[in-house]
Write a protein that binds this DNA or RNA. Structure first.
Lengths: 355, 355
DNA sequence: ATGAAAGCGCTAACAG
DNA sequence: CTGTTAGCGCTTTCAT
């Protein structure tokens, strides 16, 4: 049952781009023209070929272990079947679910994804260019800042793009995000209903949409709940990272009238807030309640289990993929911004103010 | 300052594979032959072209915003610059660090990675075939089972492959793994030194190397420490997942002489063990000590903070990438198996046996 | 140092 | 229904 390598090895004398059987090998073996093979193997052109010939070709293909060279096909058709994904930080546990939703939907449509972790300082422009060089058919950006130059770059290059998780300031590109306003409102209302009045916010970076929108919602929601500006306080974290959250939370706790509850703009910042409380010998939730955002996997295992705003990450990924597929099919720049509703998951980190 | 699209749009009358400038456009603009442009833009062939011509070409390239089509280049050279990575579960927080190490090293060498999440039931063979269809230059498998048919498939197809995290039974492919034997031995010695004698093991799935090796080490290490077979007990989890860990741990706790300490084959199983203890109203570490494995990010935030065997994930990724690059350069099947030393990180989940 | 020519594997327009 | 022809964008002989 050993395979015949003859045809494969004779060809390609000078350079050896591919050692697997090609459409030509099958054609030769079946005594037909390569294009007939191409047609027989294509689902869409399949009907143009005689039943029995098609069967013979199929058989030969499997016998030779033929695998189409999608790269070559792509060169011809101009579509690579590749989607580039730019992620802010793969190590952030809130990202995998989004990626899961993205990949599943895109795979189902025949696309593969190239995920690139945008490092701290790396230029997204350059990364986009590299992906374009690879011929990606579309881009998912999970990493944009509010006035990111990459937005204009993508628009100029007229690449199908969808933003996920974050939007740009001008809403120039289609996006799928969570309702940041609603998420923080839920958190504020919950804390106020527990009796908190001095509430602090560990805000996310001010150059990303989630950071500013959640912050704005904190201001608006606390005001609507009747809290005075003096009772509410905000410290901004430099990054969505545990250490940055710790530093910001420490600043909140140093105030003369420190908060009895802290809303963190994301769970990693909430982790840092836990650290800050521990460092100050404060108990959560007895001394200070904490609410996170994103409801990362396993935050129920913390001590205390983290009350957090759950966002539909997987859904977000799926919808973004869907939007991108539409965009690829119809490159019209109709704006569409999908906003998903969050829910508040109550756990042990919030309680009525102590004392 | 608007770009001249003439050349780009005139060409390609019938189909429109690419709307960006090509090597031809530059050649035309500079009054040279396309091959000269190719040479001028290639770092290795660059010396074959006159200094000033090269400069003119470079200038034209940047002016037009030229991006080489690596797909076309790949078709010609037979190398795509793509590496496929098969992951068992992207959502598992121990994976991102490995991926980080992989991607960084491979990117530095000019490769991009396509990460594919091997779902529960999906055939790895088929996924490998899809990646081969995409022309990947090499494969990193983080997902192999002990007698995985995909191994033979890859060997037969003579694709450069490196295993990471797990090995196959026959050690037929190069691999980078942690020293499973040493990791569990550290855990056992630690617990024995604390005074534990009845120790349980929540073993990983018996079809993956980490599962059986850690289990074997548990048996050997406890024996070497002088524990009898009656004092040690093992329950196997069906998967590296929290729920599976919970079920296995519950079985351990149901024994007539339950363990005073449990070593989980990985942190996710340790999470499940925490759940089981909580369900039985037992305190960790007072009633039962727990040791995890992998030292996932943020396990220090659990209650109690998880004592865990730390493995050098990032390093693992880097070394695997290195190995793969060598393998691509020299496809000789010299076996090389890199084993990284783990360390035990002591935290609050282990203490002397209670009462 | 440069141009000419060929071709990687595949698909699609055009004939018949 | 099938063969012919052409060519995607690029690299690499082979001649100058």
């Amino acid at each position: 049952m050993k395979r015949n390598n003859q045809t494969g090895s004779q060809r390609r004398a000078k350079f050896a781009p591919q050692s697997r059987p090609t459409i030509k090998d099958i054609a030769q073996r079946c005594g037909v023209h390569p294009s007939t093979v191409s047609r027989a193997l294509s689902t869409v052109m399949h009907h143009l070929v005689a039943e029995d010939v098609a069967r013979r070709i199929q058989a030969a293909a499997t016998a030779l272990g033929y695998r189409p060279n999608v790269t070559a096909a792509g060169l011809r058709t101009g579509r690579s079947g590749l989607i580039g994904v730019l992620a802010p930080d793969i190590a952030d546990p809130s990202f995998p679910p989004i990626l899961g939703g993205l990949a599943e939907t895109l795979n189902a449509a025949g696309y593969a994804t190239i995920v690139v972790d945008v490092g701290p300082q790396r230029s997204q422009r350059e990364l986009v260019n590299q992906l374009v060089s690879r011929g990606v058919d579309g881009l998912v950006l999970a990493s944009v800042t509010l006035n990111d130059p990459v937005i204009k770059h993508c628009i100029d290059a007229s690449i199908p793009v969808v933003l996920v998780s974050r939007t740009d300031a001008g809403r120039r590109l289609p996006s799928v995000v969570t309702d940041d306003e609603a998420g923080i409102r839920l958190a504020v209302e919950h804390l106020v209903s527990l009796g908190h009045r001095r509430i602090g916010h560990v805000a996310g970076p001010s150059d990303v949409s989630t950071g500013v929108l959640r912050r704005a919602s904190f201001v608006a929601s606390t005001a609507r709940a009747g809290l005075s500006a003096r009772e509410t306080m905000i410290e901004t974290a430099q990054a969505y990272a545990r250490m940055a959250g710790r530093l910001a939370a420490l600043r909140l706790l140093e105030r003369k009238a420190p908060p009895t509850a802290i809303i963190a703009a994301n769970d990693l910042l909430a982790f840092g807030t836990y650290d800050a409380l521990a460092a100050r010998g404060l108990n959560c939730p007895k001394d200070v309640s904490v609410v996170g955002h994103n409801d990362m996997p396993y935050v129920d295992m913390l001590s205390p289990p983290l009350t957090s705003v759950r966002i539909a990450q997987r859904d977000m990924g799926e919808q973004a993929a869907q939007l991108l597929l539409e965009r690829i099919a119809h490159p019209v720049l109709r704006r569409s911004h999908i906003v998903l509703k969050p829910t508040l998951i109550l756990r042990g980190s919030t309680a009525a103010p102590g004392r």
